[in-house]
Amino acid sequence: MDRATFETRLFGVLRWVVIAILIVVTLFPFYYMVLLSIRPIEAVLGNPGDLWAGPAEWTVSTYREVLSPVSDGGQGFVGLIGNTLLVAVSATLLTLLVSLPGSYAVSRLQFVGRRQVHFLFLAIYLFPAILLAIPLFTVFTRLGLRGSLFGLIIVYIAQTIPVSIYMLRNYLTTIPVSLEEAAAVDGYSRLQTLRKVILPLAAPAVMANALYVFMIAWNEYLFALLFLVENRGNWTVSLGLAQLSGGIEVSKTVLMAGSVVLTLPIVIIFFATERLLTEGLTAGADKG
């Protein structure tokens, strides 16, 4: 057997081994999360190695504890979900409102400093988020914005704008300029063209972008911790869950139920829109 045949067979088998390992390695933690969240804590402590639990053993008491309001002795995660949704949806809409004209300008218009814009964006990622947090913490304290969701939303916009503009710009460059010229001939102003011609055409990219920003905002932890920790009423789910782990009387199974509550919306959104999202993110990456 020559080298080529041998290797082709070897990698033909190895490929399936790798795929199997990949599936186990990526999915197992999530399976384990769900499994622990529906097992009673006594069962987990007794047999920590069990990877299966029959329906007879299942319990929803962990979810009841996580979701029921604080006044009923629960952890009040329903309220936290509301806060997180408010933050994530507002951050998404505002980021789009800001980055859509921005990306249009970067992809279509010649203006002074166009080539320097990406240096500005690089700066956002070059400095650790914790470094920005120091002065923002101070300013928000002075303005009374610390502890409010509004301050958090502004930070999320700034954190997601570079990727957002990059994604949209890549898509906008694929839209033929002639369409805009036709719109101009029809007497559309630039803003009207953007709204009535470009926006509908870029809908897939805008949607992918919205999902990206939503996910980042939903998952974020550091700034939520720094700004909101003293104001329990405004906690996001991530922060609430992290604070929960510090509590002594909270069992690990309840913690896992909280993790499922935090993760599930993201997983649903992601599986429903995976293609849209990955294509939006990697558009342009295949050009080298």
């Binding site: 998952n219 932890y221 991530s238 869950l241 992290a242 913690l255 993760t263 993201i266």
Partner: peptide, 8 residues
């Protein structure tokens, strides 16, 4: 979310 996966 990072909080959930670190806990698991």
């Amino acid at each position: 979310p990072v909080v959930a996966v670190t806990f698991v």
